[in-house]
Amino acid sequence: MLQPAPQPAISPDLSLDAAQRETEEFLTVQMPSILSSVEYDMPRFGEEARPTKLAHVTRARVETRHVTGTSDAAYLIHAFGEDLLMKMQLNVRRFVVVYSIPVVKPIGSSTVAPHFERWATGAGHAGWMIGWRDAASPTEPDQNWVETYCYANLEPDFLVNDLHKLYWRTDTLQMTRYFMLEAIRANVPLSPLRAGYRI
């Protein structure tokens, strides 16, 4: 017996103000909180089992930069002895994460990208589209960056669906953690502060 075709998900009728509030909450509260667990202490096997809360074992520190009313934010993530500049844009149903790596010419995206092929494959399996580009700061023309941009299309009801938010928060966390670990493995410096960049 033929089953009826599934109906497309319908986006809830959110007011503009409510959508902006949900966006602000996601960018300025939920994301900094989850990114602080990019690095955390894991109990060793054989140690006495005891309840451990994530908030008590996180080792990463996150600084956030955001202008109220905009749909993007920047985060400086201090973890694994490195500092990673990450930018995020949330446009209702479109998600963009950008990792910025400070470089000195002639090093550029074609030099850096091959070190992250394994990471990009894993991110692609989770639903991200990955790309690379060379960039320069509009206010600091002598600062050069390689940017890794990660795009994802979100579910129509993303802003009001806690399970969807949990998935993308957690996946962004995992993607960020392994981006940093892959950079360390490949000896790719991430910290704009150590490069003397003003951010």
Rank of each mutant, 00 (worst) to 15 (best):
L2Y: 05
Q3S: 15
P6L: 09
P8T: 01
S11K: 14
P12F: 00
L14H: 08
L16N: 08
L16M: 03
A18N: 14
A18I: 09
A19Q: 11
Q20K: 14
R21S: 07
E25M: 10
F26E: 02
T28Y: 07
T28H: 07
T28K: 05
I34C: 02
I34G: 01
S37C: 08
E39A: 05
D41W: 05
M42K: 15
M42V: 15
P43S: 12
R44W: 12
E47G: 06
T52L: 13
T52I: 15
L54C: 09
A55R: 14
V57Q: 00
R61E: 07
V62F: 03
V62D: 03
V62H: 03
E63D: 09
T64Y: 06
T64D: 01
V67S: 12
G69N: 08
S71T: 12
D72S: 13
A74I: 00
H78W: 02
E82K: 01
E82Q: 06
L85N: 05
K87L: 04
Q89V: 06
V92W: 11
F95P: 05
F95M: 09
V96D: 00
V97C: 10
I101L: 13
K105N: 06
K105V: 11
K105D: 08
I107M: 14
G108M: 07
S110N: 13
S110K: 08
V112M: 04
P114D: 03
P114R: 02
P114E: 00
P114Y: 02
H115K: 08
H115P: 07
F116A: 03
T121P: 03
G122R: 12
A123R: 04
G124I: 05
G127T: 06
G127E: 02
W128D: 10
M129H: 14
M129S: 11
G131D: 12
G131N: 07
D134K: 03
T139S: 13
Q143L: 07
N144K: 12
V146Q: 04
T148R: 00
T148A: 02
Y149R: 15
Y149Q: 08
N153M: 14
D157K: 13
F158M: 04
L159I: 07
V160Y: 03
V160E: 06
D162V: 11
K165A: 05
L166Y: 01
Y167K: 15
Y167M: 11
T172N: 06
Q174F: 02
M175E: 02
T176L: 00
M180E: 09
E182H: 03
A183C: 13
R185A: 15
A186P: 13
L190A: 01
S191P: 14
P192S: 07
A195I: 02
I199C: 04
I199A: 00
